[in-house]
Design a protein around this nucleic acid. Sequence first.
DNA 1: CTAGCACCTATAGCATCGCTATATGAACTG
DNA 2: CAGTTCATATAGCGATGCTATAGGTGCTAG
Lengths: 241, 241
Amino acid sequence: MSLDGQLPPKMRLLRAAAELLAKSAGAPVSTRQITQLAGVTAPTLYHHFGDKEGLFDAVVAAGFEEYVAGERDFAPSGKPLEDIRRMWDNHVQFGLNQPELYLVMFGNIRPENRPAIVADAEALMEEMLNKAAAAGQLNVQPREAARSILAANVGVTLMLIAEPATERNLELSTMTRDAMIFAVSAEPASGSAAGDSGRSSVVVAAIALNAALQASHSDQLSSSELKLFLEWLHRISASPA
Amino acid sequence: MSLDGQLPPKMRLLRAAAELLAKSAGAPVSTRQITQLAGVTAPTLYHHFGDKEGLFDAVVAAGFEEYVAGERDFAPSGKPLEDIRRMWDNHVQFGLNQPELYLVMFGNIRPENRPAIVADAEALMEEMLNKAAAAGQLNVQPREAARSILAANVGVTLMLIAEPATERNLELSTMTRDAMIFAVSAEPASGSAAGDSGRSSVVVAAIALNAALQASHSDQLSSSELKLFLEWLHRISASPA
DNA sequence: CTAGCACCTATAGCATCGCTATATGAACTG
DNA sequence: CAGTTCATATAGCGATGCTATAGGTGCTAG
């Protein structure tokens, strides 16, 4: 009805679905609404997307690419940990800007459904954490750290979405963010009398070396040697604090 | 059909809904399924609960009371922070035991829908944190700490639910849990750090690890393994830029 | 005992939902 | 121009959430 531009119906369906999904606050969006807004009839939808969920997945995928693009845009700050902070903030902002989309992406994930997007988000975070690890700023395995940080990031975003926009307190985000990053980083942390929270420098160095090795393809060791070497490295860096 | 006990229809509807919701993995549950299992016809449902969502809310409320009861059961440990750890673990376990119920409770929360349950959960956590604060073990306001911890707790639980049960790694939970508790506790801490020492390469990391390994007698590797490991480390360290 | 009354439940059906069997048109290929 | 493939439309099926209406059930009052 209003999206009758010259765009191909597939695109019009995507936009219509995204638009309806965005404005209808939580209420279910019917395929008939979508097809009508797109100026198309039902079979067209099912021809292109197979399923209502297929269409929604496509919308989510598009939104996710936008999200990833936003995350990748500002990487080049020299400080990896600072980049992770911005990544966190960007994640939260994305969720608050498009709450419905975000809820579909992260609020309804079920085992068989789609760990795909979550896995991508984890990979993105891990990639950034690898730089921190290579710089010796990481206390734990990048993968574990990425999962942990992302989990907290999602939890905070969901909680912020849940409360009315007027009384959203972003301090919840920054506080949790810094708590997670601090707990994961190899910063001084020192001075604490209780002091077993920081891990030994062996572990930190091993983690750093591991990340550095995987980043640069050193040819000082044969592949079989490297394999064993990495295994030992992993054993060291996985040792309990 | 099978829940024809002498229980009143209202209770039978609740149990039928809970049972169907629990076993149907994510698939939508129809009112017809529920009423049939409860041995009741449609209007009965709407007379008692007004709405399908009303019925689900009742199920959620019942489940939440069970959850709260579980949380309150073991409070009396002398150490508040230890209690919070158990509270966290109990939360995660509840989510993993009844994933569908949990997803309805925490996965779909929208501003107008029901911050009620979340608020209750926050209050529960805050109550426990107040004891920690009274003992001088807290670094921030109990309310903020409660919100932050609960957000991370929900995020972790959702992430664990999202991945197949076979490869669930509970270490994600304990790691995030301890990170949050540590960041909130009255240790020196100081959340955001700025310290960055220059970026390091494979060589630098290897040298660092070498030094660290020789300084501390790690027992993760046998002596023969360690010897070969150090040799390789040396080879890497000696490699040209 | 019966009349009234509030409560609870059943019959039947509406509007809408996601989806599809089938057919028609357009566009490219030989 | 014939044949094939892709894309859209017509019409309708089964299932869904929900309801207008009516029919029992148990009570207390007369």
